[in-house]
C-alpha cells in the first residue's frame, strides 16, 4: 500500500454568484478507494464532481493529483493539454447518460478503441483485439463490435461507456449517477460489473449517486452533502448503519425496504 493519497482535495468551493454550489470541501482519496458522494438533487454533489474532474473551475481551493511518476500536480495549474491528456489516459468519466460519453455514430469497437488511438496506438489488429477483450469484460458479445451504440439498450450503452473509459487502464474514475435511468435488474448487473472491475483493477473512484444502495454496494467511504455542504462523512457502513447527522438519518430512513 502506498502511503500517499491519489487525490488531495483542499477547501474546494464553487459559487454561482451568491448561490453556493459547494462549499469548503476537503478530503483525500486513496489508491483503490471508492468514495460515494450522496445527497438529493441540488445538494451540490455534481458540482463537486465537476470541480474535481477539471470540468468546472472551482471558485477557490486546490485539487492535486498524484501523477504516475509520483509527483503531485495541482490540476488547475496544469496546462490544458496536460489536463486533457490526464482525462483520456489516467482518468475516466462515466456520465449518467451514455450518449454524453459515447460517440453514438461510430461503432462500439471504435468507441472503445478511440482512447488507444488517442495515445498513439496505430495497429488496427491490436486495437481491435483490445476492444474485443473489453467488450467481453463488460459482457457485450463480440458480434456487436461493429454496431453503433444507437442500436444498444440503455444498459449496454452504459457498459460500453465503462469499457471505453477503462481501456487505457486509468487509475481514477469519476462516475455521475452511473446507474441512473436504468431498470432495477439492469442496475444490479451494472453494479456487480462495476464492483468487480473496480476491485480487479484496483481503481480509485468517486461516485456521485442519490441511491444509497449504490453507495452501499460500491463504496468504501461516503460523503453526505446538503445545500453545498458536507453534513457527514465516514466509512460507508458506518454512515448508513449509524448515521450521526439528522439529515443523514432522514435520508437513510427514507429508503424503501424490499
Amino acid at each position: 500500500m502506498t502511503d500517499e493519497p491519489l487525490l488531495r482535495v483542499r477547501s474546494i468551493s464553487k459559487f454561482y454568484g451568491n448561490r453556493i454550489g459547494c462549499n469548503d470541501i476537503s478530503f483525500d482519496l486513496w489508491p483503490g478507494e471508492v468514495l460515494a458522494v450522496v445527497g438529493e438533487s441540488g445538494s451540490g454533489k455534481t458540482t463537486l464532481l465537476n470541480c474535481l474532474s477539471t470540468r468546472l473551475l472551482p471558485t477557490s481551493g486546490t485539487v492535486s493529483y498524484r501523477m504516475r511518476y509520483g509527483a503531485f500536480h495541482d490540476l488547475y495549474r496544469m496546462s490544458e493539454a496536460e489536463r486533457r491528456f490526464l482525462m483520456r489516459t489516467d482518468w475516466g468519466f462515466v456520465h449518467q447518460n451514455p450518449s454524453d460519453g459515447l460517440r453514438m455514430t461510430v461503432s462500439a469497437g471504435a468507441n472503445v478503441g478511440e482512447r488507444l488511438m488517442a495515445v498513439g496506438q496505430r495497429h488496427y489488429g491490436d486495437i481491435r483485439a483490445s476492444a474485443t477483450d473489453w467488450l467481453g469484460r463488460v459482457e457485450i458479445s463480440e458480434d456487436r463490435i461493429d454496431d453503433q451504440p444507437r442500436a444498444f439498450s440503455g444498459g449496454m450503452r452504459q457498459r460500453l461507456q465503462i469499457a471505453r473509459n477503462l481501456v487505457t487502464g486509468p487509475r481514477l474514475v469519476f462516475m455521475d449517477e452511473p446507474t441512473g435511468g436504468l431498470d432495477v435488474s439492469v442496475q444490479a448487473r451494472l453494479l456487480d460489473l462495476l464492483r468487480g472491475l473496480v476491485h480487479e483493477l484496483g481503481l480509485s473512484a468517486i461516485v456521485v449517486t442519490h441511491d444509497l444502495a449504490v453507495a452501499r454496494l460500491l463504496s468504501h467511504r461516503m460523503i453526505v452533502m446538503k445545500d453545498g455542504h458536507v453534513v457527514e462523512s465516514g466509512l460507508t457502513d458506518r454512515v448508513l448503519d449509524d448515521p450521526q447527522a439528522p439529515y443523514t438519518q432522514l435520508l437513510v430512513s427514507s429508503i424503501l425496504q424490499v
Binding site: E114, L116, M117, A118, R122, Y124
Partner: peptide, 14 residues
C-alpha cells in the same frame, strides 16, 4: 489530439 482521425479509418476497416 488526433486520435479521432484514426477512428474514422478504423471504422472503414471494420
Amino acid at each position: 489530439e488526433y486520435g479521432l482521425m484514426h477512428v474514422k479509418l478504423y471504422e472503414d476497416i471494420a
